[in-house]
Design a protein around this nucleic acid. Structure first.
Lengths: 336, 336
DNA sequence: CTGTTAGCGCCTTCAT
DNA sequence: ATGAAGGCGCTAACAG
C-alpha cells in the first residue's frame, strides 16, 4: 500500500493525497477527510524513509543516555518519550555507557542522517565532541546538564546542595561529611553539589574536615563503602550529605549494619528523591525529573517547528524532610 | 555527501561503492578498502532512508515497553540496546504506559514501515492485538513474558514463586501472606507467581487464609498499603511473600513504621533482586534481567539474519537469602 | 484547490 | 570485478 494506492482509492492525485496526509494547507476539508479515511481504513502510514528522502524531515529524534537502568535516566527518557510521541516524533535510543561507547558514538555518529534533533541526557559534552556533533547538522538539546553552547534544562545543583547542607547545619550538625560522586569520563559532574557544601559550611563558619570528604563513583555500593570509611574514624561525622539518593541508601545500610541508628546516631541526606527514598524514609532534595524531561522534549519540538524556545530552563528543587535526619545527639562541638 | 560523492572521490562507480559499503561480495579488497577509507574520512554513512527505499531493510527494531522508570524495564532495554547496537541496528523506542496508549499503539501501529522487527517487553499481547501486529509484517519477539505464538524469553514464574514460598515454609512459617500484583490491562500478569503460592502451600499441607491474599496493583506504596491491612488483623501473618521487590519494600516500611521488626516479627520475601534489595537486606528470588534482554535481542538479530533461533528461552532464577527472612518467633502453629 | 513532474540517495539487476 | 540504468515512495515545486 503506497501513497499512490491511497490517492487512487480516494480518487485524488498524488500531490493532494500527500498534502492531506501531512496536514499541509491547500486541501479542502472534504477531500482531506476522504483521503484520511482511506488511509486509516487500510492502516496506511506514510513511509518516513521515502518522505525524508523526498526532502522532508526524518521525524525522528535521537536520545542519548549513559544509563537506563538507573531511575533518573529511565524516568527522564520516559517523560520525553511521551512528549515526542504526541508530537509525532519517533525516538531513536542510543546508550553511551562508558568511555569507549562514548568514543565510538562521537567518532562514528551512528545517528547521522537519521534524526532531526538530538537530546543528550545527563551528559557532559566537551569541545571536541561538540565539533563532531556539528557535522550532524541537527538541533542539540541537553537535559539534566548544563551546556553553555546548547539549549538545556536542568536544576541548580548549587541550590540543591545548599538545601541539603543547610538543613543539616540548621539541625545543629557540625561534623558533616560529604560523599561526592565523580563518574570519570561519564555523565555530567554535579560540581555544584560539591561547591554548595563548601559554601554552606563556610557561611556557617564551620571548618570542613578533609577526612570527611570522600570522592567515589556513583552507586549504592560505593556509598556503602564510603560511609564505612567514615565510620572507621574514632570521631565519625554526625551527618552525611550524599550527592545522590542511591549513594545515601548505601550509606544507610552501612550505618545500620554497624549497629548504629539513622537518624539518632547519624543523619543522612541525599539528592534526587528517588522513589525508594520515601520507602527508607530518606530526607532528600527533590528534583523534578519528569518535568525536566518534558521541558527538554518540548524544547526540541519547538526547535523543530522553527519557533525558538528559551535557551535554558532551570527547574526548582525542594527539600523533603523525612526521618533520616535529626538533631545530633552527641553535640560534638560541646566536647571541644 | 552522498554515495555518488564517495564513489567519485574513490574513483569508482556507484555500484561498486555501494557494494563496498555493504560488505557485499563482488568487490576487490583493494577497492573496498579505498572506498571505506574515503567514507570514513568524510564521516560518511549510508542514508538508511534511501537504502531502505531502494529495497534494503530498515536496520531498525522497535522496542515496546510499558514503563521505563521501573528498574526492570530500564535494565531490560539497556541490555537489549547493547546487542542491537553491536549488530548495527537502531532502536526505536515506544512506550505504552496505560490502556489508552496501548490501544493507540495497536490501532495506529506507529512503528509500521519503520522497523524490521518488534520486541515487546513485559507485555501481554491478546489475539486482537496480534492480528494488528500481523499487518506490520515483521518479526515479533517477546521479552519478559510468555507468548505461545511468538518467540520469547522469560523466567519460570512458577519456579520463582516456588523458591520464595518454599523458603518461607522451610523456615517454619505457616501464616504466610501473599501480596499479588495484578496490573489491569497492562504488563504481563505473572499468574505463575500466584499459582506457585497455592501449590507450595498445598504441598506442605498448609491451609491458605484467604484474608492473607491481597491483590493490588504494582508499586511500593501499594505494597505498603497491603501490608497495612495485613498488620491490622489480630492475628497477622508471620511472613509476607510479595510478587515483586518494590512491593516488598513498601511492606517493609509499613512493618517498621508499625514498630515491628523484619525479620524478627515478620519475614518478607520478594522477587526480582532489584538493586535496592541488597541495600535493605531483602531476601528475594533473582531473575536475570540483563540476561533476558540480551537473549531476546539476540533472537531478533538471528531472526533478521534469516537463521532461526530457539522459539523459547527460559532463564533460571535463584533464591537470594538475605536478612529479611528468619524463623518465625511466635510459632503460630503452637497456639492451635 | 488540485493534478503533474522532477528528483531525493541508494540498491539491484543488467551489461561489460 | 566493475559501471550504467531503473525505480523504491514520497514531497516540493509547478501548472492549471
Amino acid at each position: 500500500m503506497t501513497l499512490a494506492d491511497v490517492a487512487r482509492l480516494a480518487g485524488v492525485g498524488l500531490g493532494t493525497a500527500s498534502r492531506a496526509l501531512n496536514d499541509a494547507p491547500g486541501v479542502s476539508d472534504a477531500t482531506r477527510r476522504r483521503v484520511l479515511e482511506v488511509a486509516a481504513h487500510h492502516s496506511y502510514v506514510v513511509s518516513p524513509d521515502a518522505s525524508r528522502l523526498a526532502g522532508g524531515a526524518t521525524r525522528r529524534v535521537a536520545v542519548v543516555v549513559p544509563h537506563l537502568s538507573r531511575w533518573f535516566f529511565g524516568a527522564m527518557v520516559e517523560s520525553m518519550q511521551g512528549v515526542f510521541f504526541e508530537a509525532g516524533l519517533d525516538v531513536l535510543l542510543y546508550q553511551v555507557k562508558d568511555g569507549e561507547a562514548r568514543h565510538t558514538f562521537f567518532a562514528e555518529l551512528p545517528a547521522l542522517r537519521k534524526v532531526d534533533a538530538l537530546v543528550a541526557v545527563g551528559l557532559d559534552i566537551d569541545d571536541l565532541e561538540r565539533k563532531r556533533l556539528e557535522i550532524m547538522g541537527v538541533h542539540v538539546v541537553s537535559a539534566g546538564g548544563q551546556h553553555a553552547v546548547y539549549p538545556h534544562v536542568c536544576i541548580d545543583d548549587l541550590e540543591a546542595g545548599r538545601l541539603a547542607v543547610d538543613h543539616l547545619l540548621a539541625l545543629g550538625h557540625r561534623a558533616i561529611a560529604m560523599i561526592e560522586t565523580d563518574d570519570p569520563d561519564q555523565a555530567v559532574h554535579p560540581h555544584g553539589r560539591s561547591k554548595a557544601f563548601y559554601a554552606a559550611m563556610t557561611r556557617h563558619r564551620v571548618e570542613v574536615d578533609p577526612r570527611f570528604v570522600i570522592k567515589t563513583s556513583w552507586g549504592a555500593e560505593q556509598g556503602a563503602d564510603a560511609s564505612g570509611t567514615l565510620l572507621g574514624y574514632t570521631d565519625p561525622p554526625t551527618a552525611i550529605y550524599a550527592h545522590s539518593d542511591e549513594v545515601a541508601f548505601g550509606a544507610i545500610r552501612t550505618i545500620r549494619r554497624a549497629g548504629l541508628r539513622v537518624p539518632e546516631d547519624i543523619s543522612v541526606v541525599g539528592i534526587d528523591d528517588h522513589p525508594v527514598a520515601s520507602l527508607v524514609d530518606l530526607t532528600t532534595v527533590r528534583q523534578p525529573v519528569a518535568g525536566q524531561g518534558e521541558a527538554a522534549a518540548r524544547m526540541v519540538v519547538d526547535l523543530l517547528r522553527g519557533e525558538d524556545p528559551p535557551r535554558a530552563v532551570t527547574m526548582p528543587t525542594t527539600l523533603i524532610v523525612r526521618r533520616s535526619t535529626a538533631r545530633p545527639r552527641r553535640r560534638r562541638d560541646l566536647s571541644r
